[in-house]
Design a protein around this nucleic acid. Structure first.
Lengths: 276, 276
DNA sequence: TGTACATCAGTGAACGCGCGTTCACTGATGTAC
DNA sequence: TGTACATCAGTGAACGCGCGTTCACTGATGTAC
């Protein structure tokens, strides 16, 4: 595959990568608004106009960074899920497990300790991975989930990659419903003693169904809504943590985060840990 | 009070107000990073250097806008709560009600329809007010809760005003515990059938206690934690909504927001609506 | 294998812009006697 | 009530900076015959 590529082509992909890498460095140093083509060019020892051979404008470069960011975060989440899923796949050896391993190119040896494949374990792993990514790339996180860059309108290209992240969550919820050792997922959802769930408006119900039908058609509406709530909750916590809103209350917030994830798992009806 | 003030003094406070107003206009038009002293001065028909008589630097002006923003949002939340609380105060005529009215300078006539003073009603009103404020001032919202402005470090002055908002929430939770007509707040908190609450780590517990002791000492730890979760959840939803993360799922998100608030109320153990 | 032409990457200069902040100044407002 | 001085608001010019983007160009890489 690589043989057929000309020197020019290889140089081009290589430099495109290097430009984005330098831009990410800039991003980490000065934030999205401070990101300047000239600074990036300087760092690469090029003249600023040369960058226009690779990106049509500053906005184009930003878009590329955003897409890469979503992909990088999605990969981190998916990898964490795969690692947590691995052990159970191993034990079950079922078709689903094999398919998942095959698709993701899994290596049996790389399983994390304590990876038992249970949905709750997976949720913990995925949330921790997302949080770790956010902490490792705070400016990229801000670029993806913070205030929109003024004067920059995110093109359609960013929507697809962005959707991969909630998908991981939905998959876990689905597994929690199907697999649950204690049959927890089978009973009608309830979230408090003697307290019925709120009413779903027709509009909300149709919105939820539209989303569900693409990814998890068998999920009941209320569970789908709960997943959406969990999703916003997760990133709400991260934004508060990273943007300094929690200073003075639960800071450092590792334990609060962990606690909230457990509550989230309960809300999502994921079976509790065995032996409790 | 006003008589003792010199013409200079009055002109100064007036102009300070006008500058901030023009700056808020700028903010709404171009965002926080695009906010420029020169543009603000231009709008006021002044020369840019004149602004330095009122604000020592661009950062100082930004800080003032942030503080004003928190205050404006807190006022909106408090007013909504007061309106929802009003009816019950009227009926009960208790000391707490009178104190609240006195402190806030309440006017008996301005009660919203359906204001029954129940904690759940109050939560609904406050959440709706916060959301309305956010929608009315998206750039100010981004300034307060979005990515930090690069190169700008929020000074201590912004912490106090920021804390007023969660206080409103805590007050409602407290009322839900004390008042609950159905005695709902009295039983040990539970959030799912036969499912115990997650363990609170010692660190988290001490963090929660530290916060609680200032504002609501009698709140049990788990309820305090739930309030914190609700707080992050609320702003997580708003950020997703305003920053375009919900496009393609639950957009418009009015109904989703309403549903999430009901779930939040349930989590916070606020008594359900009568007749359900 | 060699030559002629087309494609492309990178250069360097330039355009036009707006920004935050400083500083010496003028003229108006306030204060003390 | 009037005068002398101090305080303060606003001016206008200037400093020094960095930015995104365009454009005509040179020289290297690729391609077709």
């Amino acid at each position: 595959v690589n043989a057929g590529r000309t020197a020019r082509e290889r140089a081009r992909t290589e430099l495109t990568r290097e430009i984005k890498e330098a831009a990410r460095g800039q991003l980490a140093a000065v934030g999205a608004d401070g990101l300047s083509l000239r600074a990036v060019a300087r760092e690469l020892g090029m003249v600023s106009s040369a960058l226009y051979r690779y990106f049509a404008s500053r906005d184009d470069l930003l878009t590329a960074l955003i897409v890469d960011g979503y992909e990088s975060l999605a990969l981190a989440a998916e990898a964490a899920d795969k690692a947590a899923r691995g052990a159970a796949d191993e034990a079950a050896g079922g078709a689903a497990g094999k398919a998942a391993r095959g698709a993701a190119g899994g290596v049996p040896g790389e399983l994390a300790a304590g990876a038992d494949g249970r949905p709750r374990t997976r949720l913990r792993a995925v949330c921790a991975a997302i949080r770790a990514w956010a902490h490792a790339h705070p400016h990229e996180y801000a670029l993806l989930f913070g205030s929109p860059v003024p004067g920059y309108q995110a093109p359609q290209a960013t929507v697809g990659p962005a959707a991969r992240i909630p998908l991981v969550l939905l998959e876990i919820v689905r597994a929690g419903r199907a697999g649950g050792g204690s049959g927890a997922g089978q009973r009608p959802m309830n979230h408090g003693p003697g307290r019925p769930l709120p009413v779903l408006s027709p509009l909300l119900e149709s919105q939820l169904r539209a989303v569900a039908e693409q990814f998890a058609p068998e999920l009941p509406d209320h569970l789908m809504a709960t997943a959406l709530i969990a999703w916003t909750q997760l990133f709400g916590m991260l934004s508060f943590e990273l943007f300094g809103q929690l200073v003075g209350s639960v800071d450092p917030s590792d334990d609060f985060f962990g606690y909230a994830v457990e509550r989230m798992a309960d809300q999502l009806d994921l079976p509790p840990d065995p032996g409790r």
